[in-house]
Amino acid sequence: MRILVVGAGAVGGYFGGRMALAGQNVTFLVREARAAQLAADGLVIKSPRGDATLADVKTVLTSQIDSPYDLVLLSCKAYDLDSAMDAFAPAVGPSTTILPMLNGMRHLDLLRARFGNANVLGGVCLIAATLDASRAIVQMTDMHAIVFGELDGAKSARVEAIAAALRTGGFDVDATDAIVQQMWEKWVFLATLAGSTCLFRANVGNILAAPGGEAAIRALFDECGAVAAAYGHAVRASFAERSRAMLFASGSSLTASMLRDIENGLRTEGDHVLGDLLKRRPANAAVGSAATTPTLLELAYTHVKAYEARHGR
């Protein structure tokens, strides 16, 4: 299986690197500067699961793609999706499968509109990773998983084949018949975590230690969950229990990557994680105590947009 990983950042670089180290035919679609850096230093992974360096990194520029790939693994930031699609389009043929691991749901509409419904799977990744100053991939916890499947819930030969290839990388792989449900659930959790930690500029433990902090997180989780329920994907009890265990852990240092982006003066996925969820909220959804009272989700989104306005992003 010829696998094209779009980018060699924290997420794509980690999962693609693990598969390449296991002998899979993995190529990274990168820009010239990243290709030069990888050629000089290799792809470096620092991880609780074991450090590793991929010395011979196969890279390709968009202009060098001359034939379709079997699998395109897509893990770019949501705001880079348009440029990413332009970049990997030459790698997509009639039998190419695109596995996106982006947050939210809007990317599915864009990918299917451009490349066709049959070419796109649903997927989520569960990992906390970043790039350090030397562009090495640093995994911050030992969690590393990809969950994916057909959007219609069908079991297919291509899903089985992709799952087999992914599993060689040593990370957790779940080929599921309920990927849309799991994408909605991750979105609810992420919007709650990002909304609360960004709005209060603090980690979960700090928020819980503040007056009204627990109630605020709980209300935001319920508000986000109501949107998922309106689309027929109410958060399941087992997922809600796991989410609350993380969101209400006293002393927790957990934050969202969106808060780290704000603290570092970077662009955020506020429009895609918070804004798009607001757009999908049913017109009759419960709002504040009066028409002029914003909900917590609205406040969180306004907070992120005010940050972007201030920084001109």
Rank of each mutant, 00 (worst) to 15 (best):
I179G: 07
S250D: 12
T197M: 06
S75N: 13
A161Y: 06
A306K: 07
D51Q: 09
A78G: 04
T197D: 04
C125L: 11
L81A: 07
E160W: 00
S238M: 05
V60A: 13
A230S: 15
N119L: 05
A154D: 07
T53V: 15
Y231F: 12
V92R: 12
N264L: 11
G42Q: 10
A52P: 02
V60F: 02
L99Y: 02
M101A: 09
S156M: 00
T197N: 02
S47G: 12
R313H: 15
V159T: 14
S83Y: 01
G195K: 03
L102P: 03
D80I: 00
A145Q: 13
H107A: 13
G212H: 12
A249C: 04
A194W: 02
G17D: 13
S95D: 15
P282C: 10
H144F: 00
T130M: 09
M105W: 06
E241I: 03
I146W: 06
V92E: 12
P48M: 10
K186W: 05
A84Y: 05
P100T: 08
V180R: 13
N117M: 06
E241R: 13
E32Y: 00
T59P: 00
V304K: 04
L81C: 10
A145G: 03
L61S: 13
V304F: 03
D109W: 01
G169C: 07
S257I: 08
A228K: 03
T141C: 08
D172C: 01
L266N: 14
A39T: 12
A84W: 02
R49N: 15
P68E: 08
G195R: 06
A118I: 01
R280L: 11
D70C: 04
Y79R: 03
R158K: 12
R114K: 14
A87E: 14
A283T: 05
F200Y: 12
S156I: 03
T62S: 14
D174W: 01
R167W: 03
G169V: 07
A157V: 07
T141D: 13
G205Q: 09
G116V: 11
E223V: 00
P68C: 07
R135C: 09
G7P: 00
K77Q: 11
I45A: 11
